[in-house]
Write a protein that binds this DNA or RNA. Structure first.
Lengths: 213, 213
DNA sequence: GTCTATACGGAGATAGAC
DNA sequence: GTCTATCTCCGTATAGAC
């Protein structure tokens, strides 16, 4: 039965989630995982096929419900006829990300960083898995943006979505290209609430500026 | 003499730059590099200390002149008394990035991607090297932004710089979090000129919106 | 079906001869 | 400076025990 997975596979999943979040993908070895999970080295390849596929499983376990939550918020927004507010559309994405980042049982803020980094860094195996299953996400948000920003041409719309989601994913990833230069970072780039408070207006300013084409 | 480096070290540098750009850091092995450069495997560790340190050398060889070019443009801008235009300040950063991306002798667009990805992905050794040598870059641009956006408080200023540089570096890195979902990307996220044409207005909109604090 | 022990090839690093 | 030989650790594959 698919549901009653052996404890071995579950233990591997949970231990490796913690280790991937803490040390990153490359720096986490299968020997670290299997030792801490108290299972045999070969168990990972038996249950998941490869280290890459293990990461994909770890990733999908959190990503699927996150995407569903965003689309559910989008459904709710459109159901109550508020789908023409771009701010509210943006918040249907932001809010589930924030909720996930506050949930310690699901790894909290650290896991959101893993998610975002995996997207930004473009893991090989992840690409295929995502384009297979999550094209709906992009299509739904493209529709939603088009409806909330009807004065934009298709080119403008695509570019602005590109920048907006890039900015949001990177913000949640905790990437701070300036902090690596600075001795004492002024911006607490890892505090999700503070990020959102400044991020949303910035993104909205770019989205709502006059059309260029 | 520092200038007359042995041909061995130089060959390693040039071959590894090409391979890092083409295959990425992890996927490029020392054995690939040394074979193609026709030097012994141990030569890398003798001349550079480690694979990480080799990457740092490859990186710095291009990054240092890029940063200098930006600061030179900033100097020129302020010398002619145009330092209060935020658009022009932003362009002092964009223009050298574009120039580098057009220069095939220095790796062209692919190398700009490597640079940006290294920043975004936050290589361990890179962090230390950068914070040691390039704090001037951040300090100069912080001053320049403060002068061009005098109505902003320090908090607003830091956040907006954080978002603006994050957006610009990611754009040049060619990261496209949406494209991995899409079958056919509408946005040609890798074409530097097209990026800039849409990127600059988006960034400026966020930078110049009314202050929040 | 599950799990264990073990082996293999490739990686980065290094000691020591020349 | 250079090169050979060798070390440890990695992900992976498989044969065979339960």
């Amino acid at each position: 039965m698919e549901v009653n997975r052996s404890d071995t596979a579950t233990r591997i999943l949970e231990v490796s989630e913690l280790l991937f979040v803490e040390h990153g993908f490359e720096a986490t070895s299968l020997r670290m995982i299997t030792q801490q999970a108290e299972v045999n080295l070969a168990a990972v390849n038996y249950h998941f096929g490869s280290k890459d596929a293990l990461f994909e499983s770890v990733f999908m376990r959190r990503f699927t419900p996150l995407i569903s939550a965003c689309l559910a918020e989008l459904d709710a927004l459109e159901a109550k006829g508020a789908g023409d507010s771009i701010e509210r559309v943006v918040m249907t994405f932001i809010r589930p990300c924030l909720a996930l980042s506050r949930d310690p049982a699901r790894g909290g803020a650290l896991f959101v960083r893993l998610l975002s980094r995996a997207l930004v860094e473009n893991h090989r195996l992840l690409r295929e898995a995502l384009s297979r299953e999550y094209s709906e996400f992009v299509e739904r948000y493209t529709q939603a943006f088009r409806r909330a920003l009807p004065e934009l041409g298709e080119q403008d719309l695509s570019w602005r979505m590109h920048f907006a989601f890039g900015l949001m994913f990177n913000a949640f990833a905790g990437n701070d290209v300036l902090k690596i230069f600075r001795k004492s970072p002024v911006v607490t780039a890892r505090d999700p609430e503070a990020i959102v408070q400044h991020l949303v207006p910035f993104v909205l300013a770019g989205l709502t500026m006059p059309a260029s084409d």
